[in-house]
Structure formats: structure tokens, C-alpha cells
Design a protein around this nucleic acid. Structure first.
Length: 279
DNA sequence: AACTACGCCAACCGCATCACC
DNA sequence: AGGTGATGCGGTTGGCGTAGT
């Protein structure tokens, strides 16, 4: 018995979001906060299903998202987390508050999967090391570890992103985000009237476009300029807090460790077992 | 210059899980 | 406790851009 679709397919727009739609969505969320996605299309008049709105917000419009240009450290972190957690992209993304699960998933599938497979000369491969470590732990134990790990990640995320994600208490975050989008759109409108995909596929998208100047008003809000750092709720100080206050010291130190994958297998085993013992 | 193949990424789909009644 | 709706998550796809021929 199939569940009814989240929206009737008739009259629901699909495909790339237009800047206008982005403005409407951001304005609405700025006013009401995220959540109750079901109500978003009806209240905004957007011809999108609730799911599409949520996805657009979480993967693109949400404040604090960094796009493109994964750093070496992020890369290593993803590789190790993937070895540890498997394809649990949401869990992995919770260790990288500036990245979305979709982004990480795409990056893994297009870049890292090959990269990891390439030096498949033996135990150095993080993937295989992860699998071997899985074998060394009983299934139940592994499941517990995983659950524990996800919980830790969630806590870390809360710690890390409290500045950028506490929507109710920090409306300025919304404003910043809207400014960001508006600048993007302004640039987009001033420039060549490209198809709607342009801002979304322009590499760093929102972040890059944030450098354009000026202010713009939307249907229900006026935006002004701010330095880039304040545009995103997530900045260096947040990162510092994350590093300083994260509650998963051993696992974290392993994940963020700079050494280049040597001795990963043993370390992973230790990390896994210790994590289990800790909680 | 035209065509083809491939890579990348935003967005969609469907199942799983959560939350509320 | 069970049913139902809302949301989360991971896999997959479609379309655009670009490199190669």
C-alpha cells in the first residue's frame, strides 16, 4: 500500500530553482523559520512540493553553507568518516557543518571514490581498512558504535552550529542569508540573463556572488550589505569553538589528524573500540 | 567547427524514521 | 498501541559544461 505522494504531481514545478523562487523561499523562512515544509508551498505560492522546498533550503539556501573547493583536510576527513560510517552522508555531514550531505555525497562519488580506490595496494586504502575493522568488531558492537558515533556527531553539530542554526533566537542569521541571496540575485539580474541554473551551478554559488555590492529589496524585506564573514553564521570563531568544545576527543583527533593514512587500520580499530567503551 | 563522451552537480524519487493524534 | 502525516536520508537521474576527437 503505497503512501500518498508528498504533493499532487499536477501543477508542481520541477527542475532548477529560479532566483525569484529562491527569494520567495528565503523570505518566507526568514519570517517563519524552517519547518512545517508542508505549509511552505501553499503559504508562499511556490509551485513546488514541500520536499523540494526543504531540499533547496538545506542544500543550497541554508546559512553557513560552504560550496565547492573542498580543502585537503575536509577531503581526508570525509575519506576517514566514510571508512568509519559508510555511506551515512548525513552523519558524515554532521562533522562538517559547513557542508551538506548532498555536497559530500556528490564529492565522494565524483572525486574521492576514485581517489580512494586508486591506491588500492593494500591496507592503506581507507575503505578497505574500514571494512576490515568492521570485520574485527561484532555486528552488534558495530551498530552500537555507529549509533554512538552519530549521536556524538549530532552533539558536535549542535555545538558547532549553534551560532548559525538557532533560528528563533538569532534572526540576524536569516537576514544575513537573505542578504547573501539577494546579492547573488542582484548580480544575476544585472549580468547576463542566463537560465535559472546559472547561480546554482556557478561553482561557489552563493558564497562567490556575495562579493557583489549594493542592496536590494524583496517582497517583504530590505537587505543591506555586510562583510562576507557575517553573511554566513559560520565563521572562524565557530570553527574554533568546534575544535575547542567538541566532545569526541579521540575520534576527532583521529579524524583531523594530519598524517596521511599511514597506520589507519589500527587507528581505526582503536578509535572504534574506544568510542564504544567511552559511551 | 561539429560531434561525442564524460564529469559534475542540483534536484528528484522512494523508503525509513519520527512525531503527533 | 496503532495509524497517519511530516520529515530525513541515501540512491539515482537529468541536464549542463567541457575536454577530447
Amino acid at each position: 500500500m503505497g503512501r500518498p505522494p508528498c504533493c499532487d504531481k499536477n501543477g508542481v514545478k520541477k527542475g532548477p530553482w529560479t532566483p525569484e523562487e529562491d527569494i520567495i523561499l528565503v523570505s518566507y523562512i526568514q519570517e517563519h523559520g524552517p519547518g512545517n515544509w508542508r505549509a511552505v508551498p501553499t503559504n508562499t505560492g511556490l509551485l513546488r512540493c514541500s520536499k523540494s522546498c526543504r531540499l533547496r533550503w538545506t542544500n543550497y539556501l541554508r546559512p553557513g553553507i560552504k560550496r565547492g573547493n573542498f580543502t585537503d583536510q575536509e577531503e581526508k576527513l570525509i575519506i576517514r568518516l566514510q571508512a568509519l560510517l559508510g555511506n551515512r552522508w548525513a552523519a558524515i555531514a554532521s562533522y562538517l557543518p559547513e557542508r551538506t550531505d548532498n555536497d559530500i555525497k556528490n564529492y565522494w562519488n565524483t572525486h574521492l571514490k576514485k581517489k580512494v580506490r586508486k591506491p588500492e595496494t593494500g591496507s592503506d586504502c581507507p575503505k578497505s581498512s574500514g571494512q576490515s575493522s568492521h570485520r574485527s568488531v561484532s555486528k552488534g558492537q558495530w551498530e552500537r558504535c555507529l549509533q554512538t558515533d552519530i549521536n556524538m556527531a549530532k552533539r558536535a553539530l549542535c555545538e558547532a552550529s549553534s551560532a548559525s542554526c538557532s533560528f528563533g533566537s538569532k534572526p540576524s542569521t536569516y537576514a544575513s542569508n537573505t542578504e547573501n541571496i539577494s546579492r547573488l540575485l542582484q548580480g544575476w539580474m544585472k549580468g547576463s540573463p542566463k537560465p535559472s541554473v546559472a547561480p546554482a551551478s556557478s561553482g561557489s554559488g552563493v558564497a562567490e556572488s556575495a562579493s557583489s555590492q549594493g542592496s536590494v529589496s524583496t517582497s517583504n524585506c530590505i537587505m543591506s550589505l555586510e562583510p562576507l564573514e557575517s553573511v554566513f553564521g559560520f565563521n572562524d570563531s565557530t570553527a574554533e569553538r568546534w575544535e575547542a568544545g567538541a566532545p569526541f576527543s579521540l575520534l576527532e583527533s583521529w579524524l583531523l589528524d594530519e598524517h596521511d593514512g599511514h597506520g589507519q587500520e589500527s587507528f581505526l580499530d582503536v578509535a572504534l573500540l574506544d568510542t564504544c567503551e567511552l559511551f
